[in-house]
Design a protein around this nucleic acid. Structure first.
Lengths: 120, 120
DNA sequence: TGCAATAGTTTCAAAAAATGAACTATGGAG
DNA sequence: CTCCATAGTTCATTTTTTGAAACTATTGCA
């Protein structure tokens, strides 16, 4: 389980998972390769600055790769590395916890009024 | 595994795990009931304000309980709830990731010079 | 030449989080 | 009446993070 003799050892992962958008961003990437604009839309209203900041950090930590495709218009794809894929169990554990203890916002959204629904 | 149809569902846990000291604090509490001063020493140099802020938040979210023991000197004990205990698998998954991909700072500390060691 | 579409960067302001130092509260012992 | 030890609180300041708006870069096409 958890090795209590080396408490500082979780720090590398704290650096990776830290930041307002990081977990949501990683969730998107678990779903597969994504382009910059696509991530921006799915994580709306994230700012482009914050998105690049996060992606650069994850790149530095070896969690994602950035691939530029020249051509018109150019585009860029972000993809999880092997190392990044291995983060999935952490999310699965979070997910399991939420199932048992949290609430899924979607469930309550089922009975929103038509007017509210229209504005989405 | 992860339910992609309900992406917003991880948010409750983001609120719980957020903050510079939270994960380290929870690690301490997994080890057992702890008093305020004890946590403060183990998490040094955390400020008392930050520590109370975190503990209050965790209390509000039903993750820890606070028990006051009157008497002289008075003392307070913080303990994980059942709900809080169930967060352990998340940490275990983080730990496993670090084992495979990260570095344990302790390992490198084995060959520090005597002068450096003396200052600890 | 200038526009369209992608993916950013830059700069500055605003908001949120953490820190540090000093102070409060409790209650018995001396 | 003061002191000790515990567990905080308060407030001003600093540091860190996030955000918004406007601007840059690339390259083919009309």
């Amino acid at each position: 389980m958890i090795d209590r003799s080396c408490p500082g050892a979780i720090e590398p992962i704290l650096e990776i998972l830290d930041g307002k958008w990081t977990l949501l961003l990683l969730l998107e990437l678990f779903d597969g390769t994504k382009r910059f604009g696509e991530l921006r839309r799915k994580l709306h209203p994230i700012s482009p600055k914050t998105l690049t900041d996060r992606l650069r950090l994850l790149e530095d930590k070896g969690i994602v790769t950035r691939t530029l495709y020249p051509g018109v218009p150019l585009h860029v794809e972000y993809e999880l590395t092997e190392r990044g894929q291995r983060l999935q169990p952490i999310f699965a554990a979070m997910w399991a916890w939420v199932q048992e203890n949290g609430v899924c916002p979607g469930k309550e959204a089922e009975n929103i009024s038509p007017e509210e629904a229209g504005s989405l």
